[in-house]
Write a protein that binds this DNA or RNA. Structure first.
Lengths: 368, 368
DNA sequence: CTGAAAGCGCTTACAG
DNA sequence: CTGAAAGCGCTTACAG
């Protein structure tokens, strides 16, 4: 298994040969690149190219018959407006770039998927730019780059880096943010879209309490603020039930981090229920519990957040709160498109859903 | 938990209120958008704007002192060349778009991550365009859109849709493909980068055979060709060892699909070892086995492919072949950059690594 | 080594 | 309702 990039090593590499090549001939199927412009269309339709411009931009003052004719020749010639030229000339760029700190974690990747899908449907190009940290330099650079395309922006402000980037976006650029909390600094003054994590956390915590657990422990994901919404919901549900509020364990996003938190939790016999900030964390916590000889859910119940495609196949299958991040991405784009085009969009209303599977149950008889 | 997009519902939404808003005021931190051009730099540096153009493009014929002066004022003024203008004027677009059938599956998302990282470092903008299927219309449209940016292309041709898109890219566009097989139609005539899946499959199969299993079963992921490379490697390793070659089970990419395949396999007592086309599939197969009362690895050994971040935390922890897709993405970009700039790039050589964990072991004593 | 010219493909005002 | 003009910010030849 090799991956290399030596310059133009021609011919078919054999076993163990460099995994890169640039054969001389070309395969079939190649049409010619680049071509028909607004002027070609104009000539073919017998109008000036300004009129063609009006037609493709849906300008109202164009006679119906000429519009139809132009539209016809556009279809015939397969004309596609050049985005770079449009952007340069000051028209709508028809492009969104997603500014985010991550593209592979489940929630982030799902939002990106939703944005791409919706953008594609609306014929928008989509760009991706990651901002590596909340450091001023990184943020400034990321925003500058993401913004220079002259297109619109969707910033994923679920964490500190994203929130910092959101705050640094200059006025005047079309923007929608996906935020953790609509109020507060993160979303301040910007159009946003969100998922009510707090309410979802309340639901999950209440469910665990309802099973008979005296209290629920929490392993938290990073947040855009001091207190994450999932953590806040967990706390308030506990308070409302007059249950004790154990200190939350601050973790990262991945299973490794959950595993470490789980080892600490497993050492405490009083722990019978753990609400984890996401499913990856829950996987790690579960493994740590099992390694420590604590049965799940016999001795301790574990609940996650997100419902990743794998969660139903974990052993034990994970009880979790399903959050539709893909739809959130679609909603973000819809809102953005609405603000750009002026045409109101309809966005589906999503509700959280607690998916009860095998990792949760009543506390051990001797323990509750 | 709500996500909505009603038009400009101002004010702070309370519990259960629409999860979207556009407060009137603006947060702090907003610098002014757009600004300094090549002409501003020229004026400030006391040269013509053409000279500035030469400097930013690394043109050789510029006196050292004037180059330094221009570079200095560029830094001072914070000048950033306008990509749209550059693209329009025929210069290098400094942008890549990743054309792929998927953005969330582990391997795809990891490649995208690697491309983004490398592109960012080289100051390239990155776009994403998904091609939904191998249908001619979908392919034509995807290629047309991905290509219109005038920038370069990286096509992920691991599956049929990706391979079809690759075949449809017209000549003359800068392009690098990540392919399953360097020879054959998929990579034909195009520069490519790959991971030797076949060799990795051989390694994994041999390992299982070495443990004492009479043969190894296979649950295959989709492929860009009739026979996938992982499947081919598995077959050849079996043949080389004179082991029987059971029919492979063709599956999809996800755990659900693996679970279904696993149910079928669990019904056959002769099955003691299963090589799965990826870790998600392995998770599903494992669960099906356990549900059927077959212990893993006591009764059946299971090996995956990829080594996702979760695999080490599965119960049992998954034995798998680690493939560095992120590095593959970086390599794809490096190759592309090399072809665009002419400057040779150095790309790391990657080797597959079999990660032995808990899901594999010798066959049951009575069974082998 | 460094200006002045022309043009990339479009859009926005300005005149009819 | 529909032309002709000017210009978006850059790059590529062409002249010095």
């Amino acid at each position: 298994m090799v991956v290399t990039g030596h310059t133009s090593s021609e011919g078919a590499p054999g076993e163990g040969a460099p995994g890169q090549g640039t054969p001389a001939e070309r395969g079939p199927g190649g049409e010619t690149a680049r071509s028909v412009s607004i002027r070609d269309v104009a000539a073919a339709a017998g109008v000036s190219y300004q009129t063609v411009s009006r037609v493709i931009n849906g300008h109202p003052s164009v006679k119906g018959s000429t519009r139809d004719r132009v539209l016809g020749t556009i279809a015939e010639l397969g004309f596609r407006p050049n985005r770079a030229a449009r952007a340069l000339a000051g028209g709508t760029a028809q492009s969104v770039t997603v500014l985010t700190s991550n593209t592979t974690l489940y929630g982030y990747a799902a939002v990106l998927e939703g944005v791409e899908e919706a953008a594609r449907t609306a014929d928008f190009a989509v760009g991706v730019r990651v901002v590596e940290s909340a450091e001023p330099d990184a943020v400034r650079d990321a925003v500058a780059r993401a913004t220079e395309a002259a297109g619109a922006l969707i910033v994923l402000a679920f964490d500190r880096a994203g929130a910092a980037a959101l705050a640094a976006v200059p006025d005047g650029v079309h923007l929608v943010a996906t935020v953790e909390t609509p109020v507060g600094e993160a979303g301040a003054g910007r159009p946003w879209v969100w998922i009510n994590d707090r309410e979802a956390a309340v639901t999950a915590t209440r469910y665990l309490l309802g099973l008979g657990h005296r209290t629920v422990h929490h392993v938290a994901i990073p947040s855009s603020a001091e207190t994450g919404q999932r953590l806040a919901g967990w706390q308030s549900a506990l308070a409302a039930a007059d249950a004790g509020i154990p200190p939350a364990i601050q973790a990262g996003w991945d299973s490794r981090s959950g595993y470490q938190a789980g080892r600490a939790l497993a050492a405490d016999p009083a722990v019978t229920a753990v609400l984890c900030g996401n499913d990856d964390l829950a996987l790690g916590v579960t493994r740590a519990m099992i390694e420590a000889g604590r049965a799940v859910p016999g001795d301790v119940s574990i609940v996650g957040f997100d419902d990743t495609p794998q969660s139903a196949y974990f052993v034990p299958a994970l009880t979790t709160v399903r959050l539709d991040f893909t739809e959130l991405g679609r909603a973000a784009f819809a809102l953005l498109h609405e603000r750009i085009s002026g045409r109101p969009a309809t966005v589906a209303r999503l509700d959280p859903e607690l998916i009860i599977r095998e990792s949760s149950g009543p506390p051990p008889t001797g323990g509750a």
